[in-house]
């Protein structure tokens, strides 16, 4: 079901720099209830866009509005409650048992089983450590967690980079049918081909369309 309360994500005159500028006066809008894809060369700032939306990076200037709410220190917890993050599989969670991780997130193991099965994982994974599962399993695991939380915004970083064809089809079906506001950074042509909107990062800014 499409949520009517969910509105666009608006970047208004955003500047972000680390050692050198990443974005200069970037303004754009990611459409609500649609599948938005971010493309661009490695290091162009795709992940930075995702981290700005999640409040993991703070811009030097400009504002971000999510469903008309200005993203700042006061609103961040409220806004994060409407977001799920699917990180890329390079993410390192050292020496952490998956069952501990799920307990920390207050996930009900019985309910979660169906989310695991949907992405061709089983409950054996619960007794494993993050370092013991493959990149592809890790990717599907993070997707199943996001599926469990069922939040309005889905922020994904290279969601399919380690998936084989069969698993990728399952993930593509999930994204197509989710009716969520998805912002996904990717190099994967299969994902690009099903996107509603494509945003290309170039010259420290964003261009709509390929």
């Amino acid at each position: 079901m499409i949520s009517t309360n969910v509105k666009n994500i608006v970047f208004d005159d955003i500047s972000l720099a680390f050692d050198s500028p990443i974005f200069i006066s970037l303004s754009t809008e990611f459409k609500a209830n649609s599948f938005n894809i971010l493309v661009g060369q490695s290091g162009s700032g795709k992940s930075s866009i995702l981290k700005l939306i999640l409040g993991l990076l703070t811009p030097q200037s400009g504002n971000i509005f999510i469903s008309d709410v200005n993203l700042n220190a006061d609103s961040i917890n409220l806004l994060r409650n409407s977001m799920s993050w699917i990180p890329n599989s390079d993410l390192k969670f050292p020496n952490l048992l998956i069952s501990t991780f799920l307990t920390n997130l207050a996930i009900d193991f019985n309910l979660f089983e169906k989310n695991l099965l949907k992405f061709r994982l089983n409950t054996e994974i619960l007794s494993k450590n993050f370092s013991e599962i493959s990149s592809g399993e890790k990717q599907r695991f993070f997707i199943s967690v996001a599926d469990y939380f069922d939040r309005d915004y889905l922020v994904c970083d290279e969601i399919s980079s380690s998936l084989d064809a069969e698993n990728k089809d399952i993930v593509i079906e999930f994204l197509k049918n989710s009716n969520k506001t998805i912002i996904c950074a990717t190099h994967d042509n299969d994902l690009i081909s099903i996107a509603d909107n494509i945003y290309r990062i170039e010259n420290k800014g964003i261009i709509y369309g390929l």
């Binding site: 999640l54 993991l56 994060r80 993410l91 390192k92 969670f93 997130l105 967690v145 939380f149």
Partner: peptide, 20 residues
């Protein structure tokens, strides 16, 4: 610092920082 990514993940899914 080693667990920064994990703590970030927990922040997004509202797991208390004191616990994480």
């Amino acid at each position: 610092i080693a667990k920064k990514e994990l703590i970030n993940y927990y922040e997004i899914f509202s797991f208390s920082r004191i616990k994480s």
